[in-house]
Amino acid sequence: MNTVGLALAEALHLIAGGDAKLVAIVALSLRVSATSIVVGTLVAMPLGALLAVTSFRGQRAAIVTLNALLGLPSVVVGLAVYLLLSRAGPLGSFGILFTPAAMVIAQAILVLPLIAALTRQAISDAWQETREQLRSLGAGPFASATALLWDLRFSLVTIVLAGFGRAVSEVGAVMIVGGNIDGVTRVMTTAIALETSKGDLPLALGLGFVLLAIVLALNVVAHLTREAVQRHHG
């Protein structure tokens, strides 16, 4: 059998086997990325929405900068967070380097520009259409931003999922700030990198398929939920 065939067999075997170690790694992956997404969304969505409904000097520069940050390499984010959290760094006294908390911080920073930029774009389009109406109702920037965020909540789910995809799939940042410690900070992506290092390519690719299956399952659930809710609302 070729490598891909072996990897598929390995993936099925891993999923069917319900290996305790694999379950723990998957759970940690989901937990770290879910937490970072909650943190990232709470900061980035209001930011993106406000950027869309207000106008101020330097706004275009801010928007261009935000969009450019989408290209931020995860390994750079990892390095910056590492230097911040290292004992020799400014936040070293908390001692959270090489813990899941450090991974959450790195991923939250990583997804922040993505969620903010996509939110800004979505809100900005809606703002063009409803601006007069909202103004005539006497809504200020905060009220307008809140109203539009609520109106667009179904589209925003897609943005959150995109952010989750970015967080759960990146390896550069969590490798540096988490250290890939067995049973403590080893997540799906760092486990894949490790197995690749060991030359166990079928197992590495098999883990990759497992990760893909999980992300796919999450997207299906989100999609179905959205459809059900929209149908309910008519």
Binding site: S86, A88, G92, F98, G179, N180, I181, V184
Partner: peptide
């Protein structure tokens, strides 16, 4: 908790107190 790095980087990690 093992952080596996190259020797140079491992010594640096010690130097930083991590």
């Amino acid at each position: 908790r093992v952080v596996a790095l190259g020797t140079g980087q491992a010594l640096d990690t010690g130097r930083r107190g991590d």
